[in-house]
């Protein structure tokens, strides 16, 4: 059921924060392979290093030692420019929606396309409109974030992350700020869009209610991966 080459391959990854005396190791020998089309949920208590691992994988932070390959390219010791390119290959969904207040829902989603600089304005507009319709916000495309509910804003954020068809979607507690119903909707939506586009999802969460969408669950504690279990595919 899985492709041979992993989309994300992490080998013996260590990570440290701080300098000199205050240098503290936060990740210890992480090994993780994620294959195309998988939905992986990463769980673990606060401070276990989940978000650190996620920011390393997404290219927001540069890896220090070990090996971290995304789509075949090494991110350990990568230059700033390589990190920028890596960021463009994935869609990042934050705990807070982080939509730009001065831009309408449509303009926010278009920003996810504009970064690639390959489409004309009308193409961008058309793509952004259609993905907003898919997330059920067809009537709200001209609305500003201030006039949308929490769930609606998170759906705009998902549309923004997925509009450019990224190979990998990384989500950091996307349901944390939402009630159970909106949270459920958001996760189902992510699952549906990911299946349609064939992308890989790595999702960090505390939320037990959404574990059923995962193909695999990994647990983290004190900077180490402690469990790596495959669950039966739901779909």
């Amino acid at each position: 059921m899985m492709n041979k080459t992993p989309v994300i391959a992490v080998e013996n990854l260590d990570h440290y924060f701080g300098q000199g005396q205050l240098r503290k190791q936060v990740l210890f020998g992480i090994n993780l392979e994620i294959y195309a089309g998988e939905i992986v949920i990463m769980m673990g208590p606060s401070g276990s290093g989940k978000t650190t691992l996620l920011t390393l994988v997404s290219g927001l932070r540069s890896a220090q030692s070990g090996s971290l390959k995304m789509l075949g390219s090494e991110l350990c010791g990568a230059s700033q420019e390589q990190l920028v390119q890596a960021r463009r290959h994935n869609g990042y969904i934050f705990q807070a929606h982080n939509l730009h207040q001065s831009l309408s829902a449509l303009q926010n989603v278009q920003m996810g396309l504009e970064v690639h600089g390959t489409l004309t304005r009308s193409q961008m507009r058309q793509k952004a409109t259609s993905i907003l319709e898919e997330v059920g916000l067809g009537e709200y495309i001209e609305k500003y974030p201030d006039n949308l509910s929490g769930g609606q804003k998170q759906r705009v954020a998902i549309a923004r992350a997925l509009v450019a068809h990224p190979a990998i979607v990384l989500a950091d507690e996307p349901t944390a700020a939402l009630d159970s119903k909106s949270g459920r909707d958001v996760v189902t939506l992510m699952q549906k869009l990911a299946r349609e586009q064939g992308c890989t999802i790595l999702l960090v969460t505390h939320d037990n209610r959404i574990l059923d969408v995962a193909d695999r669950i990994v647990k983290m504690e004190d900077g180490r991966l402690t469990a790596n279990s495959t669950v039966n595919a739901v779909a």
Partner: peptide, 15 residues
């Protein structure tokens, strides 16, 4: 006032 949004743009791959 826009620091979080700017950081988001950087995470999306803007230079």
């Amino acid at each position: 006032a826009h620091i979080a949004e700017y950081a988001t743009f950087k995470a999306m791959g803007y230079r």
